[in-house]
C-alpha cells in the first residue's frame, strides 16, 4: 500500500470534510433551534452550486467573489421558506414538518430541473496547487477549507456575541420563556432557518469549486448530511463539523481499498450503526 497515496487521501478527506461539516451544520442548526428536519436541505445546496455557476459565468468574475451574494441569498431564501411552508405548522407533529419541507424540496428540484436540466455542470476554477513530494494539495481545496473555517467562526461569534444570536439561542432553549422576554420568536425561528439555508448554500458554492455537479447532486448530499448530522449528534454544530471531517476522511481513505461505487453502502452501514449504538451521535445531541 502506498503511504504517499494514503497521506494524499487523508489530506483530501480532511479538507473535504471541513466543507461537509459546514454543509451539515446548516441542517443541525435548524434542528437544534426548532426540532425540524429540513428535507429541503439538498435543494439549498444545489442553489448554492448553481448560483455561483450562473453569477461567475454571467458576470465573468471570480467565483469566490460571489460569496457575499450567496450569504444574503441564503438567509433570505431561508426566511421566505420558513414563513411560507413552516410557520403555520411549526407546532405540529414531526410528520407534518417533514412533509412540508419535503414538498419544498420537490418544488425547488422540479423548478431547477426545468431551468437547468439534469446535465452535469462544472465550474472552471484553478488556484494552482502545492506539492509535497508525491502529494498534491489543490489550491481550491485549501481555499474552501479556509472559507469554511471563517464562516464557522463567524457563526459562533454571531450566536454567542450578538443580540440576535443570543435571542436565537434563547428561543431554541425555551420558546415561551423567550417570548415572555420580548423576543419575537417567529422572526428568530425564521432567521435561524435562514442561517441554516445560508450554510447549505455556502457549502454548495464551495463544493462547486471542487466537483462537477447536477441539479440532483444536492439530494445526494442531503442524504450525506443526514449521516453526518446523526454521527455528530442532532442539534450539535460542533458535532456536525467533526462528523463531516470523519465522513470526509472515511470517503477518501476507503476508496483506496474499495471501489467508489460501494461508498454509499458503507456510509449507510455507518449510519445504521450509529443509530443503533449511539443514536445521540458521537458528540451528543443538543439543542443549540
Amino acid at each position: 500500500m502506498n503511504i504517499e497515496a494514503l497521506i494524499a487521501s487523508t489530506f483530501d478527506g480532511l479538507m473535504l470534510g471541513f466543507v461537509y461539516g459546514l454543509m451539515a451544520m446548516g441542517l443541525t442548526l435548524i434542528f437544534g433551534v426548532m426540532k425540524v428536519i429540513n428535507l429541503g436541505h439538498g435543494p439549498m445546496i444545489a442553489i448554492g452550486m448553481f448560483a455561483v455557476l450562473v453569477m461567475s459565468q454571467a458576470l465573468g468574475i471570480n467565483p469566490y467573489l460571489t460569496l457575499p451574494v450567496i450569504v444574503v441569498m441564503g438567509i433570505l431564501t431561508g426566511i421566505v421558506m420558513y414563513f411560507l411552508a413552516l410557520h403555520r405548522v411549526i407546532n405540529s407533529p414531526e410528520l407534518t414538518t417533514l412533509l412540508a419541507t419535503f414538498s419544498v424540496n420537490m418544488m425547488i428540484t422540479g423548478l431547477m430541473t426545468v431551468i437547468f436540466t439534469t446535465s452535469p455542470r462544472g465550474l472552471d476554477v484553478t488556484l494552482g496547487s502545492l506539492q509535497f513530494g508525491q502529494v498534491t494539495i489543490l489550491g481550491t481545496r485549501v481555499t474552501a477549507v479556509v472559507i469554511a473555517v471563517v464562516v464557522t467562526i463567524a457563526l459562533y461569534l454571531f450566536l454567542y456575541r450578538t443580540r440576535q444570536g443570543k435571542s436565537i439561542r434563547a428561543v431554541a432553549n425555551n420558546r415561551s420563556a423567550a417570548e415572555l422576554m420580548g423576543i419575537n420568536s417567529s422572526w428568530m425561528l425564521g432567521l435561524s432557518f435562514g442561517m441554516g439555508t445560508m450554510l447549505a448554500m455556502i457549502s454548495g458554492m464551495l463544493l462547486a469549486t471542487m466537483f462537477s455537479f447536477t441539479v440532483l447532486t444536492g439530494n445526494t448530499l442531503e442524504t450525506k448530511s443526514f449521516v453526518i448530522v446523526v454521527l455528530g449528534g442532532l442539534g450539535n454544530p460542533t458535532g456536525a463539523l467533526f462528523g463531516g471531517i470523519i465522513i470526509g476522511l472515511l470517503e477518501s481513505i476507503t476508496t483506496i481499498f474499495i471501489p467508489v461505487s460501494w461508498v454509499p453502502v458503507l456510509e449507510f452501514v455507518v449510519f445504521i450503526m450509529i443509530l443503533l449504538v449511539r443514536p445521540n451521535g458521537i458528540f451528543g445531541a443538543r439543542s443549540s
Binding site: I37, P93, L98, T223, V263, V265, I272
Partner: peptide, 28 residues
C-alpha cells in the same frame, strides 16, 4: 427491528438510507 426503535424523523431518514444503500449494492 433495529430501525423502528427510532423515533419519527430518524426512522424516515433511515429508510432513505436503506433505499440508497440497497440500490448501490444492487448496482454492484
Amino acid at each position: 427491528m433495529p430501525v423502528l426503535r427510532l423515533r419519527g424523523a430518524y426512522f424516515a431518514l433511515a429508510t432513505i438510507g436503506i433505499n440508497e444503500a440497497v440500490r448501490s449494492f444492487v448496482s454492484n
